[in-house]
Each structure stands twice: as C-alpha cells, then as structure tokens.
C-alpha cells in the first residue's frame, strides 16, 4: 500500500486539500468528470488515466483541490465507476478513505436502452430508480423498462 501510494504520487502530484478519486476504470474518467461537473472547475484539477494498477490492470485517478463532495453528489459516479475509492485530504494528510455507493436514483446520467422511450426522442432528462444495486438494474421513470448493466450507456 505504502509503495503504491508513493508511485502514484510520482505520477500525479499530491494535493494539499481536497478529494482524490482513485480506482476509476480507465474508460470512465471523462464520464466521472462530466457527472461531477468538473469541466468548468476553477481550482486545481489533476487527471490521469491508463495508469498501471495491480488491482485493476489500468485505472484512472482524479484529484480535485479544495473540493469535498456531498455523498449523494459523489455517489452518482458509482454508476460509471463502481470500483472508485475516495480519499479526503487535508494538509497533505489522508483524513478519510471510503468507497462509492450506488445511489437510489439516477438523474440524467444514464441513457434508457429502449430506443422507443420518449427520453430518446425528445429533449428530456432521464430518470431511473435503481431497483437492484448489486446487479445494477435501473427502472426508467418514463417507459418503465429496465436498463441493466450489460446495456447501460451514458449521456
């Protein structure tokens, strides 16, 4: 663990205060940025992807300076990055480590897999109730069809 942290810090510099989102699947880094509205973020933001990871093969990491997310805000990323871990940093020290949790509802993150759903045919935000957190099954608020892990796509 010590060693891994050291190696990470060599590749992506440490932040003084803020949140580190680690163990993001490489392909999901930009989805995470979008979901957390970080494209317009004005503070220091460090992004790296396709880093070697012993656990995951390849992973991404995002370090957000001076930002501490509320849990319902950060949990949205569980849909794209269920493996993500969060590290809260204050004065270069790790204050807290936690995992993301799949939320009860997902608004405007996922696309409904049903091509005939109204959300795929009009400008409407999608809305899902998460009916199975383990298998990741999302029930569309509008067409009532289930979008599952194997046909999930992001907006």
């Amino acid at each position: 663990m010590e060693k891994e942290n050291l190696r990470k810090e060599l590749k992506v510099s440490a932040i003084e205060n803020g949140t580190v989102i680690d163990h993001i699947p490489s392909g999901s880094v930009f989805h995470v940025i979008k979901i957390l509205n970080l494209t317009e973020y004005q503070n220091q933001l460090l992004i790296a992807t396709n880093l070697d990871s012993r656990k995951m093969g390849k992973k991404g990491i995002i370090k957000v300076s001076n930002k501490f997310f509320k849990s319902d805000e950060i949990n949205k990323i569980a849909l794209v990055a269920p493996t993500a871990t969060l590290i809260i940093i204050k004065n270069f020290e790790v204050i807290e480590k936690k995992k993301v949790e799949v939320p009860d509802y997902a608004e405007n993150i996922v696309k409904c897999f049903n091509p005939n759903c109204i959300t795929n045919n009009e400008e409407i935000s999608t809305k899902f109730k998460v009916t199975d957190k383990k298998e990741l099954k999302l029930r569309c608020h509008f067409c009532e069809k289930i979008t599952a892990r194997n046909n999930i796509a992001f907006r």
Partner: peptide, 10 residues
Amino acid sequence: RHPREGSARF
C-alpha cells in the same frame, strides 16, 4: 395516446 413509451408520464 402516443407511440412512444413514457410519453404519457412525461
């Protein structure tokens, strides 16, 4: 009545 699923909820 509408041909798209979810149109009525919307």
